[in-house]
Simulated scan of single mutants.
Amino acid sequence: MRQFFPLRDLSKEPHNTILGYPRATKSQIQTRVKELKKLGIDGIIFEGPMIINKICVLGKGYTGVVVLAKLGTKKVALKIRRTDSPRPDMKGETILLQTANKAGAGPKLIASSKNFLVMEYLDGAKIYDWIKDLKGKGSTASLKNTIRKVLTDCYRLDSAGIDHGELSNITKHVIVGKKITLIDFESSSLERKVSNVTSACQAILIGSGIAKMVNRIYKLPPKQKIITVLRKYKELRTQKSFDDVLEALKLT
């Protein structure tokens, strides 16, 4: 059964180890609890597929730990900046997620502060696990719809000039549930040359574990055909060249 821990309990062992992961002073923990109060967070529900110090969380990256939290009556995803993060605050990631949101991609940003990002909570499975468990009637249509949505969001990011940066290893970066959403913009950039559509296509459709699973559900076009339309898209990056990618992949 899921257990909710109010803010007053988060400064105590063992949950303070998550709030100040990997290590923090009492003063840092107290400052972070005050920060959460200002953001309106009521507490944290420790559940999820990843375990840190015997405590369940939603995820862990090199800049932060993500947990399930309560904001009033609403469940939200709370990203906690690691104390050993190379970044001094969450400003950069806030700007990147705001840019993604304006383009119509990513989890909705609700609020942010120096050490926290409060985001829409997306209940679902990582794309690799979702495809692995996909079977039965309607699976082909469902898979095509998911890939089309992922690539459309990637095109929106390309058009907005934001490069996600992690889509060549897409298995952890798409949640499939009621919504199909790209997540985790901590490695994103507004300075790099964008390659979201090409990276996602390569990860999902060309020579990967996911591509083999996809090909068992619906027959992919020859690899060279995919590469040809992707090269053209990379060169032009227009709506027409993106539509040509979808058509070549039988996703229209």
Score class of each variant (00 low, 15 high):
27 S>I: 05
69 A>G: 06
169 N>P: 06
200 A>N: 15
120 E>S: 07
202 Q>R: 15
172 K>Q: 14
58 L>A: 07
130 W>Y: 00
30 Q>C: 05
241 S>M: 01
245 V>L: 07
73 T>P: 06
159 S>H: 10
15 H>F: 06
58 L>G: 10
60 K>Y: 11
11 S>N: 05
170 I>C: 13
111 A>E: 05
184 D>E: 04
64 G>W: 06
121 Y>I: 11
239 Q>D: 05
113 S>Q: 06
199 S>L: 12
245 V>T: 03
107 P>V: 09
135 K>F: 04
49 P>S: 15
116 F>S: 03
88 P>R: 03
21 Y>R: 01
2 R>V: 08
32 R>A: 04
168 S>A: 12
91 K>S: 00
223 K>W: 08
21 Y>V: 00
83 T>P: 00
151 L>W: 00
110 I>H: 09
134 L>N: 02
190 L>G: 10
190 L>D: 08
103 A>I: 05
51 I>N: 15
113 S>L: 07
108 K>C: 05
120 E>D: 07
49 P>T: 14
151 L>A: 05
240 K>M: 08
37 K>F: 06
9 D>V: 14
149 K>V: 10
89 D>T: 02
43 G>C: 09
96 L>M: 03
217 I>K: 01
143 L>P: 03
106 G>S: 13
45 I>M: 13
167 L>G: 13
32 R>I: 04
143 L>K: 00
102 K>L: 13
108 K>I: 09
185 F>N: 12
212 K>M: 09
183 I>M: 14
104 G>W: 08
248 A>E: 04
92 G>Q: 06
59 G>I: 06
226 I>Y: 09
246 L>H: 04
18 I>A: 00
211 A>C: 09
162 I>D: 10
82 R>W: 02
69 A>E: 07
36 L>T: 10
197 V>C: 14
25 T>G: 03
5 F>S: 11
133 D>L: 02
144 K>T: 02
165 G>C: 13
144 K>I: 01
158 D>N: 02
167 L>H: 12
231 R>G: 13
203 A>P: 13
8 R>F: 06
62 Y>T: 08
112 S>N: 05
213 M>Q: 04
28 Q>E: 08
55 I>P: 10
93 E>P: 05
207 G>E: 11
170 I>M: 14
23 R>P: 00
116 F>L: 04
140 T>N: 06
238 T>K: 01
35 E>C: 07
186 E>V: 13
154 C>W: 05
21 Y>F: 01
216 R>P: 00
34 K>D: 10
54 K>T: 13
159 S>A: 15
117 L>D: 02
60 K>R: 11
140 T>C: 06
218 Y>Q: 03
146 T>E: 02
195 S>K: 15
34 K>A: 12
38 K>P: 08
41 I>F: 08
244 D>T: 06
69 A>F: 12
3 Q>T: 13
132 K>E: 00
8 R>P: 11
133 D>F: 01
167 L>W: 15
145 N>L: 15
97 L>G: 01
159 S>Q: 15
59 G>K: 11
162 I>Y: 10
206 I>E: 14
68 L>I: 09
191 E>G: 10
232 K>R: 14
215 N>T: 05
41 I>E: 07
179 K>H: 11
165 G>D: 09
7 L>C: 04
62 Y>K: 09
113 S>R: 06
93 E>T: 01
